[in-house]
Design a protein around this nucleic acid. Structure first.
Lengths: 233, 233
DNA sequence: CAGTGGTCTAGACCACTAG
DNA sequence: TAGTGGTCTAGACCACTGA
């Protein structure tokens, strides 16, 4: 385990356990260096991680403080809060509608940077949150990378399987979103009415080496969809 | 000017000028160290900045590569791409509907962490993109921080004025969003129909020292609203 | 002006990739 | 196995905050 990762985890746990609120002051750098017996840069690296994650903010000349917003029930749009945490917190579940190997659409091939003759796994599923429909999801996985999928895997967390099971390292994602009206088919799956609002999200996920491996199109139920983003400016 | 900031700017310009595409390889760390005559950590810091900004990705054992998505016309939801760039690229304009000093609503006071007896600047404006209505925006600025505003300022970029004019340093923002249907009033302002879809975004902006100074509620025209997010996972 | 976080260095060693 | 980026150190110096 990386030292800075470990320090970040410890600090986050500490904040969680002691239920520290926005603005609570953490120990100064000197103390953290001594406490964990590491150099200044290592502590700094850990704090940068937490800052990116939206857990703390640092003020030069003053100290390190807890950052925590007041609202519950919002899903993080940047999945930097951890997959497992999300799954637990929101009791997500899935129902699989389709799973097969096929040729990609032109659109999918373009986004995955493959030929329309290459194979992809096609996954279509509905996701539920607290027992309500959350979204309708269609995904294309490059088969030469994600070599095997089955119904059991995709009912659980696909990404967890990709990292743990296949030993692949996920790097980054490009996500595009806009708002529109539900088509009849989407409305039926989400148990809403045609013409109701929807949030439509397309994402291209890449491995750490930059190779795209998943192109997904997700239509969210507007009633259930509350998102948040913590940004540094 | 910070060295790592300068290096990051230079590299970004280089990529822009040479129109490097996704996957293009940049010089290795050694070369960048020599080229800019700085230590390894400094180059690393510059590259971390660019990585966070979604400009490059690094692969251990392999190199540093350009990251660039293929879609145009999408607005970045994390304003980490720079305000000025956005304004230029999208030809944003504003029409002011209201500007006054008043007492905050309970909601605004709560989010700004002030008393309902404190003064706030209230701003209501419509923003246009390429001459079309983009959004309807209501903002509350803590008056003790943002001490002065006038119509001219808020017709241009408020944030630019806050940093340049008032010399304040903006730190981070918490943003909450969901999808809903337009009310009659919103529809009128946005030149759409009541019941049409909308993207509704609430943000709380904080100074670098953690103090909230702006609570804003924005309703986007669904036709014009295309957003993207570049995330690291 | 004491104390805090931010920048930067020089160098050791490690983990991974690709030929 | 040579070359690449990632981690970590110890320490100097700088910029900012708050009493």
């Amino acid at each position: 385990m990386l030292k800075y990762q470990h320090i970040a985890d410890e600090l986050e746990n500490y904040i969680e356990e002691h239920k520290l609120q926005q603005g609570a002051k953490l120990p100064v750098l000197q103390d953290l260096m001594r406490q964990f017996n590491v150099s200044k840069s290592t502590v700094t690296k850990a704090l940068e991680l937490l800052e990116k994650k939206g857990v703390v903010f640092q003020v030069r000349g003053s100290g390190i403080f807890v950052r925590r917003h007041k609202r519950n029930g919002y899903i993080s749009l940047l999945s930097n809060q951890g997959f497992k945490k999300m799954l637990e917190e929101f009791q997500l579940a899935s129902k699989v509608i389709a799973l097969d190997v096929r040729k990609p659409t032109k659109e999918a091939a373009l986004n995955l940077n493959i030929s329309i003759d290459d194979d992809v796994y096609y996954v279509k599923r509905i996701r539920f949150i607290h027992g309500q429909t959350l979204c309708l999801e269609e995904s294309y996985f490059t088969k030469s990378i994600v070599t095997y999928l089955n119904k059991e895997i995709i009912t659980e967390s696909i990404f967890n399987y990709i990292t743990e099971g296949l030993g692949l390292s996920i790097g980054f994602a490009d996500t595009f979103l806009h708002v529109d009206k539900l088509t009849a088919e989407e409305a039926q799956y989400l148990e809403l009415k045609e013409g109701d609002p929807k949030l439509y999200v397309e994402s291209i996920f890449h491995l750490s080496n930059g190779q795209p491996f998943d192109f997904s199109k997700v239509t969210y139920n507007y009633v259930q969809s509350q998102f948040f983003i913590q940004a540094e400016l």
